[in-house]
Computed example of a mutant assay.
Amino acid sequence: MLLYLRLPRQMKGDRTSAVLIATLPALLATLCCQNVTRGDTWTELNGSAVEFWSFRERFHRTYGVNSQQFDQRLRSFQDAIKRHVHLNSLSTSPKSAQYGINQFSDLSQEEFRNLYLQASSDQAPLFPGPKTEGLPAKFDWRDKTVVAPVPNQLACGSCWAFSVVGAMQSVHAIGGSQLMELSVQQVLDLKLVLQPEYPYKAKTGICHFFSPSHGGVALKNFTAHGFSGQEEAMMGHLVEHGPLAVIVDAVSWQDYLGGIIQHHCSSQRSNHAVLVVGYNAAGEIPYWIVQNSWGTTWGDEGYVYIKIGGNVCGIADSVAALFL
């Protein structure tokens, strides 16, 4: 069986700023006295020292100042700053997505893709059914307390598992059970136990067997369809069946902070699995509400919003509904 699968705004006068003000002079003095490995490092730091030092403090980076890794991360960080300027210059529509510094800002684009964008999917058949009539203007499964907290896959290509398990958790709760976090680590068994019984390790390991008598959640069936050109029908699918596991193109998500992604979001290749938990079609720009698996420091507390219509980010290409 094949499964088709904000950074919070910097506040003036906060503790990070105080630490930065106190420690930046010491950093700069140290650099002046050290034998820096590359002649242009000081020039580059002079233009972005505040931002990079604040970034290192906020995301607990431990690489030393006078090191090759520091040089590499600084250059990736500066490339990211340039990328943010370009992406934000294109975001001129109401409630457009905003791009800036987050936990991925010291990764090169190649590193980011290799670490986080390794999902793939077969082409799903187009949805054959009619669109659902009389849909509400807004619908969010979180309002019904059937969506688990935002997970963090860490540097492991397990997004597809988080997407599927997220959908299973919600469908299980929609069916009348208590919302429980299931074990992503055991997902290949298709009979899930609770997260504490089988904790996530951010790597593939040997499967631990549980007897059939052990309580768990089993996946009975699923559907996988493409909804390109039929996103209103996809809205009905969400309302009827629960949160949907989808495969998207997330290349530009490395720099996402919040707002509605409306364009410049595709390399023409699906590469990341996420969970669509709702939509809002009441405003000027209708959008999908999407839970990611990169923790709550990414995006809007772990969520991303994608414009409905036009198959933005390939969000309608491969859409799975699960049945327990």
Rank of each mutant, 00 (worst) to 15 (best):
K144W: 08
P151M: 00
K307E: 15
S93F: 10
M234L: 15
Q69M: 06
W53E: 00
E111S: 15
P25H: 05
L5S: 09
Q291N: 01
G314A: 12
T223E: 04
W294R: 04
H272Q: 13
H172M: 05
L154H: 03
V19G: 12
D143V: 01
F55A: 03
L238T: 11
A29E: 10
Q98Y: 09
E232T: 15
T204D: 11
Q68D: 14
G100E: 03
D106V: 06
G13Q: 09
L324M: 11
L188E: 15
N88R: 11
L28M: 14
G13E: 05
G226V: 09
G278W: 02
Q68G: 13
A124G: 12
S252A: 11
S183W: 00
W298R: 04
F162Y: 10
S120D: 13
L194F: 04
W141T: 07
A273E: 07
D189K: 15
A29R: 12
M180G: 01
Q186Y: 07
E133P: 05
A26Y: 14
G278R: 04
A245R: 04
K138G: 00
E231L: 04
H263G: 13
L28C: 07
S228N: 08
S267G: 13
L117W: 09
Q103K: 13
E57H: 06
M11F: 07
N271K: 09
M168W: 00
W53G: 00
L28R: 11
P130M: 07
G47T: 14
Y63V: 03
F209T: 15
L115R: 06
D71T: 05
F112K: 02
D79N: 11
L27V: 14
P196D: 09
T92I: 15
R6I: 13
P128L: 08
L45N: 01
Q178K: 14
